[in-house]
Structures are given as C-alpha cells and as structure tokens.
Amino acid sequence: VGAFSGLMIASQASPIGQTMFGLAPATAALYVSLYSISNSSGRLIWGTVSDKIGRSKTLMIIFSVVAFSLFILTIIPGQFGFSLGIIGLGICFGGVMGVFPSIVMENYGPANQGVNYGIVFTGYSLAAFFAPRVAVQMAAANNGNYSQAFYVAIALSLVGLVLSVLYSKISKKGVQK
C-alpha cells in the first residue's frame, strides 16, 4: 500500500506531466529528476522524523501527505500543481522505504532482519507490478487523464492510514501487557 502511489508516479511521471499538465517532454523529464531527488530526501527526512515521534505516527503523516499530494494532482492545474504533487509523493515514497526497515527490526529483532524485511518487501514487488498497469490502463480509458488512477491510489493511501492507526493501537496494547 505504501509503495503503490510512489511506483505509479515513478513509472508515469513524464507521461502525466505531458498529458495532464501540458509540459514539454524535456520539462517533464526534469520532473522525473525532481521526483528522484525528493525520494532520496524523503528517506532521510522521514527516517529522522520517525526516530523522534515514532514509526506509527510517521506512517500516519506519510499516508495523509500521499493522499493530499495525489488530490493536488487532480485539482491544481499547471506546473505548480504538478510540482507540489510530485515533491510530496517523492518525499513520502522515500519515507515509506526509510521507515519500514525500522518497523520490521523493532517488531522482529535483528536475528532474521534480512528474511523478515524480504517478506515485507514483497509488497513492494506487488506494487511495482500493479501500480504502473493501473495507471496506464486508467489513463488509456480516460484519454490520457490519470485522475482515476490517482483516486485508486488515494483510496489505497487511506487504507494505509487506517492500517497505521490499527498498528499503533495494537502496538500500544502489546507494550501495556
């Protein structure tokens, strides 16, 4: 759920910029770079935030920002809307990738970190398979408009938010026992 929107945008940033926001191919390519820089930055930013406020709260914020950034892509036209959406999504995609290893370590310890994180990371593989396909198919069905794909990703982000809240409550009960 956390990787879906990030991989959807990573695979389609240039076509989205060109078809929905009217960017020239060269300008759209620059936004792919901006997305990558945001992704890298997000790993450091959200990793630091999660060390300070906790993993669950950080994930709740990340999923909220993802949903908001996708919504921005549907309502704010032009380069400004595209910039806001791309930066928000890039930072949060990096954040998901930066926070999940710590969550796995906290829950299962270091003994089998490689195997445990490998199991969790299969979700990334599923997102890498489905997200670009959903985006391309929905855009093709809507004359190059990716908004319907953004709505699917918003729904998945909200599912991630709910799961983060549930995880937080379960984690607190486990600590109390």
Score class of each variant (00 low, 15 high):
Ala128Trp: 03
Ile170Gly: 08
Ser64Met: 11
Val104Arg: 03
Gly98Lys: 06
Ser164Leu: 06
Val165Lys: 15
Val136Trp: 01
Leu30Gln: 15
Val96Arg: 00
Leu156Ile: 09
Val96Asn: 11
Gly78Cys: 07
Gly98Glu: 08
Gly2Thr: 10
Tyr167Lys: 10
Lys169Thr: 11
Gly95Ile: 03
Tyr117Gly: 09
Pro132Gly: 02
Leu163Val: 06
Tyr31Gln: 02
Ile103Lys: 04
Ser11Ile: 06
Ser125Gly: 15
Gly160His: 03
Ala127Glu: 11
Pro101Phe: 00
Arg55Ala: 07
Ser36Lys: 01
Val152Ser: 04
Lys169Gln: 12
Val65Asp: 12
Lys173Trp: 07
Val175Asn: 11
Val134Ile: 09
Gly54Glu: 13
Phe93Pro: 01
Pro101His: 05
Phe21Gly: 02
Val99Tyr: 00
Ser168Asn: 14
Ala140Pro: 11
Tyr146Glu: 05
Gly6Thr: 04
Val66Pro: 00
Ala140Thr: 14
Leu158Gln: 04
Ser5Glu: 11
Met60His: 09
Val120Glu: 06
Leu126Ala: 12
Phe150Asp: 03
Ser36Cys: 01
Gly94Trp: 00
Ile45Thr: 09
Ile62Gly: 06
Ser168Arg: 13
Ile91Asn: 03
Asn39Thr: 13
Phe130Gly: 03
Val136Arg: 04
Asn39Ile: 11
Met8Asn: 01
Leu30Thr: 12
Leu73Ala: 05
Ser69Cys: 02
Gly54His: 13
Val175Pro: 03
Tyr108Gly: 13
Trp46His: 10
Gly85Ala: 12
Gln176Tyr: 04
Met20Tyr: 01
Tyr167His: 13
Asn145Ala: 15
Gly118Thr: 08
Ala67Met: 08
Ile87Val: 15
Pro15Glu: 09
Gly81Val: 05
Asn116His: 04
Ala141His: 06
Gln79Trp: 02
Gly94Ser: 04
Ile37Gly: 02
Leu44Asp: 05
Met20Pro: 02
Val175Thr: 13
Gly6Val: 02
Phe130Cys: 12
Ala131Pro: 06
Met105Arg: 14
Ile53Gln: 05
Gly144Lys: 02
Tyr146Phe: 12
Leu161Gln: 05
Ile91Val: 15
Thr19Arg: 14
Ala10Asp: 06
Val136Leu: 13
Ser171Gln: 15
Val49Asp: 07
Gly118Glu: 14
Ser164Gly: 07
Gly114Leu: 10
Met20Leu: 09
Ala111Arg: 14
Val162Glu: 06
Asn107Met: 14
Val65Thr: 14
Leu161Tyr: 12
Met105Ile: 12
Arg43Trp: 04
Gly54Met: 14
Ser147Leu: 03
Ala149Gln: 04
Pro25Glu: 08
Ile76Glu: 08
Gly6Phe: 00
Lys52His: 11
Phe121Trp: 07
Asn145Phe: 04
Ala153Pro: 06
Val115Thr: 14
Val162Pro: 08
Tyr35Phe: 14
Met60Val: 12
Ile45Asp: 00
Ile170Pro: 04
Ala149Phe: 01
Leu44Trp: 00
Leu84Ala: 03
Val96Cys: 04
Ile72Pro: 08
Ile61Glu: 14
Ala141Phe: 05
Asn143Trp: 01
Ile72Tyr: 09
Ala141Glu: 10
Phe68Glu: 13
Ile119Gln: 07
Ile76Ala: 13
Leu23Arg: 07
Ala10Glu: 12
Tyr117Arg: 10
Leu70Met: 12
Met97Cys: 11
Phe71Ser: 15
Gly123Gln: 09
Val152Met: 05
Gly85Arg: 08
Asn143Ala: 15
Gly85Leu: 11
Leu84Trp: 02
Met97Arg: 02
Ser11Gly: 15
Gly118Phe: 05
